[in-house]
């Protein structure tokens, strides 16, 4: 039951990341998707993979995307 609710939240967050025009907001929502993916790995009894996904998705991915947005532009124009 916990898994079903988490999956629904994750898919909603992924759709929001696809729709948003603000790229910074999309990156933040992608961080939430990565976080819930780590919890699903943990529920599937794979703590090694959950630790890798947590340490990558929590910090490094967000930092890399934010640096790339800083070097380019923030808003996706029409």
């Amino acid at each position: 039951m916990v898994a079903i609710i988490l999956v629904i939240i994750m898919l909603i967050a992924a759709v929001v990341a696809a729709v948003l025009k603000d790229l910074l907001g999309a990156v933040i929502v992608a961080a939430l998707v990565s976080l819930i993916t780590a919890i699903l790995f943990y529920l599937l009894q794979a703590p090694d993979v959950a630790m890798a996904e947590a340490s990558i998705g929590a910090a490094l991915e967000t930092v890399i995307f934010v640096i790339a947005i800083r070097k380019t532009e923030r808003f996706e124009d029409k």
Binding site: L24, A31, Y42, P47, A54, S55, A58, A59, T62, V63
Partner: peptide, 29 residues
């Protein structure tokens, strides 16, 4: 109880992404 290491990683590392976005918003990086 060996699973608790994973939550330790979360508690220690999630603030780095927040710091990155905050530094972007104040034009630091």
């Amino acid at each position: 109880y060996v699973y608790l290491d994973v939550s330790l990683v979360y508690a220690l590392l999630t603030f780095i992404g927040t710091v990155a976005i905050a530094r972007y918003l104040e034009r630091g990086i």
